[in-house]
């Protein structure tokens, strides 16, 4: 997003070294408002999560994480992310590749379709699968006759997660690949590379940081998704409860320490994502800026 910078030079302002026109009080007010806002809405909740998680001491914290149902919820969340993130990596990469590098009929439609999960409420995303795979659903009878359980089992949770997290990789890559154009690949092909070589040695290195960003965000959402998964999970303890669902259950059982201990793991995941992102930016800043489309 290269916003055109508007610079106007008004000599009576003292702070002309920077490209700002606002007076000092305005700038201080704006900065304060932003910081207070972030503090209240982002930092404070984060602090409270950890405060509540350790409210009864470190021992209680680790004891609640060692609970069999909690361990199973963690395992399930990791499993779901481990299936849906690689799937979306492949889907997202192919979709972005098709949209950015080729012209075909229905391209605009495909682009809109990719954005669909962002604009649809996650609860609806879940319900769609109920209508499709539920016992009363379109495919319900056939699945039942063949003894295939999708809804209220791991496959349903994976499907809902894939649906909700589908746009992350593709959205990150499409503008990037569009901006880069086909020049590099065409050069590679004209020098005798085959399609796979062009992809592996030319396209992939060009988009690697965008891809990594997409995967990080996709993973964070896959582990944190609540709405869609809640609809298709069936809430069977120790079997189909993911971490976010388990947080709700523990909280409803008045087990605040347990709930916030699991929540702290999710918050920790968010922090790790953030740190990784920042580290990548620090280490490869110029390169990312050069290859990042937005």
């Amino acid at each position: 997003m290269a916003d055109p910078e508007i610079k106007s030079y008004e000599p009576h302002h003292e702070s002309q070294s920077a490209a700002v026109t606002e007076s000092r009080p305005v700038r201080i007010t704006l900065t304060t408002v932003t910081l207070v806002f972030l503090g209240i809405f982002l930092l404070l909740p984060l602090i409270i999560v950890f405060k509540e998680a350790f409210a009864k001491g470190v021992g209680a914290y680790f004891q609640s994480l060692g609970d069999a149902d909690t361990r199973s919820a963690i395992r399930l969340t990791l499993l779901v992310a481990a299936i849906s993130v690689p799937l979306n990596l492949v889907f997202g990469l192919s979709a972005a590749w098709a949209i950015a590098k080729f012209e075909f009929k229905g391209k605009a439609f495909l682009t809109t379709l990719i954005d669909l999960p962002f604009s649809v409420s996650p609860v609806i995303s879940g319900l769609v699968y109920v209508l499709l795979f539920g016992a009363q659903g379109l495919l319900g009878e056939w699945l039942n006759a063949h003894g295939i359980q999708i809804l209220f089992a791991v496959p349903g949770i994976v499907l809902a997660t894939v649906f909700v997290t589908f746009p992350f990789v593709a959205r990150e890559l499409i503008p990037l690949m569009q901006e880069q154009g086909n020049g590099d690949e065409e050069a590679a092909l004209s020098l005798g590379a085959n399609g796979w070589q062009a992809f592996w040695y030319v396209t992939l290195p060009n988009i690697k940081w965008g891809l990594l960003y997409g995967v990080l965000l996709c993973n964070a959402r896959a582990m944190g998704e609540f709405g869609a998964v809640s609809v298709v999970s069936g809430h069977i303890r120790g079997l189909t409860n993911t971490m976010p669902l388990h947080v709700e259950i523990l909280y409803n059982e008045y087990n605040a320490v347990g709930a916030f201990a699991v929540a702290s793991l999710l918050a920790g995941l968010a922090l790790v994502t953030l740190v990784l992102k920042t580290l990548l930016e620090m280490r490869y800043g110029p390169e990312i800026a050069a290859t990042r489309g937005h």
Partner: peptide
């Protein structure tokens, strides 16, 4: 509702 929809 979930049992109707196939929760086993």
């Amino acid at each position: 509702r979930a049992v109707i929809d196939g929760l086993n």
